Amino acid sequence: MTPVRIAVVSAGLGEPSSTKLLADRLRDATLQALADCGAHAEAVDVVLRPLAQDIAAHMVTHNATEALSAAIREVIDADAIIAVTPTFNMSYSGLFKSFFDGIEEGQLASIPTALAATGGSARHSMVMDTAMRPMFAYLKAQVVPTGVFAASEDWGADSGLDRRIAREGKELADLMTALPRRREADPFDVEGGAFQSFEQLLGHA
Rank of each mutant, 00 (worst) to 15 (best):
A67R: 11
S69V: 02
S69G: 14
A70I: 07
A70P: 02
A71W: 08
A71C: 07
E74W: 11
D77N: 15
D79F: 05
A80C: 12
I81F: 10
A83W: 02
A83C: 04
A83G: 03
V84E: 03
F88G: 00
F88H: 08
N89Q: 13
S93W: 01
G94S: 12
S98Y: 11
F99T: 05
F99H: 09
F100G: 05
I103F: 06
I103C: 07
E105P: 06
G106V: 09
G106I: 08
Q107T: 10
L108W: 07
A109L: 09
S110F: 15
T113Q: 10
A114V: 14
A114F: 14
A116G: 14
G119I: 00
S121F: 08
R123T: 06
H124P: 01
M126E: 02
M126W: 02
V127Q: 01
V127M: 02
M128T: 00
D129M: 10
T130H: 14
M132C: 00
P134A: 10
F136N: 06
F136P: 06
A137Q: 10
Y138M: 15
L139M: 15
K140W: 12
A141Y: 04
V144Y: 04
V144K: 04
T146K: 03
G147T: 09
G147C: 10
V148W: 04
S152A: 11
S152C: 03
E153Q: 13
D154N: 08
D154M: 10
W155H: 11
W155L: 07
A157I: 11
D158Q: 04
D158G: 01
G160V: 04
L161H: 00
L161T: 00
R163F: 05
R163W: 04
